[in-house]
Amino acid sequence: METFFAVAFSFPTVVFSVLLCVAILYWLISLLGMGDIDADGDIDAVGDFSGLMVTLGLQGVPLPLVLTLLFLFGWLASYFVDLVFGSLVPAGVLNWLYGAAVIFSALVASVLVTSIVVRPLRPLFRRAFLQPLQKRIVGTPCVVISSRVTETSGRGETVLDGAHLVLQIRSHSPLSRRERAVIIEHIPDKNAWWVVPESEFHSGGTTG
């Protein structure tokens, strides 16, 4: 037990220990009803971070769950690496370089493992939360944030209950960055939304 605490609360593992403690505290507060868990698995994170989440294969489940898994797997990787090799590294600059390398390697490993773990969880969150979300999002305006929107690609930002949400959007009419559109239909198999230009929507041309 003494060895466990010595490794868990020494550099570099202590970095993940602190992050994991914060995540555990968050879940405890949520379970006590003092906080809300963002369980809209169909929504990406706000801004450019959403693109990173998709690239890493971490989209489709609540962000708090993704972060918790990242911290957990990062902690496990860092702990066992430091347990085996930590005593072999001399103190000083080499120890800091070693720690930085362990943290980076643990992060890479945790991203890979988390992307595999969340894959089977996505349908669960989609079934549980997508239908109410669809009804609330359809009909809301959005702003194009990608360079363009076509029938096969594009992203837009909308505001729902004061929260800025970034969605994958598609349009039969080409749209450019900062143009306004209206969400008219969900595309379940692509986890995206059909939109039409705002002017077309108000003129009555809403067929998708």
Results as ranks from 00 to 15, higher is better:
E2D: 14
E2S: 14
V7M: 03
V7D: 00
A8L: 04
F9V: 04
P12L: 01
T13W: 02
T13L: 05
V14T: 08
V15H: 08
S17H: 00
S17T: 04
L19P: 06
L20P: 06
Y26I: 02
W27P: 03
L28V: 15
I29P: 03
S30R: 06
L31Q: 14
L31E: 08
L32F: 11
G33D: 13
M34N: 09
D38F: 12
A39P: 01
D42I: 08
I43T: 04
I43C: 09
D44F: 10
D44K: 00
D44L: 07
A45V: 11
V46S: 11
G47I: 08
G47K: 12
G47A: 09
F49M: 11
G51E: 09
G51Q: 12
L52A: 15
V54A: 10
V54N: 06
T55D: 03
L56N: 08
G60Q: 11
L63P: 04
P64I: 08
L65I: 15
V66H: 09
L67D: 02
T68P: 04
L69N: 04
L70E: 06
L70A: 07
F71Q: 10
F73I: 07
G74R: 02
W75P: 00
L76S: 05
L76F: 11
Y79M: 04
Y79E: 03
Y79V: 04
L83H: 02
V84T: 03
F85D: 01
L88S: 02
L88E: 02
G92I: 12
N95I: 00
Y98S: 01
Y98Q: 00
S105Q: 00
L107A: 13
A109N: 04
L112P: 02
L112K: 10
S115Q: 06
S115N: 12
V117E: 08
R119D: 13
R119C: 06
R122W: 07
P123T: 15
L124K: 07
R126S: 13
R127L: 12
F129N: 09
Q131R: 12
L133W: 06
R136E: 13
G139A: 10
P141F: 14
V143G: 02
S146N: 05
S147P: 00
S147Q: 10
S147W: 01
V149N: 07
V149A: 11
T150N: 13
E151Y: 05
E151V: 13
T152N: 12
G154R: 11
T158P: 03
L160T: 07
G162A: 11
A163W: 10
A163L: 14
L165K: 14
V166W: 02
Q168P: 02
Q168N: 14
I169Y: 07
H172K: 10
H172L: 13
L175E: 08
S176T: 12
R178G: 03
E179M: 15
A181S: 14
V182T: 15
I184A: 01
E185V: 05
P188K: 11
P188H: 10
D189L: 05
D189S: 14
D189N: 11
D189A: 06
W194P: 04
P197F: 13
S199D: 14
E200R: 09
F201Q: 04
G204N: 10
G205P: 00
T206Q: 05
T207G: 10
G208A: 12
G208I: 14
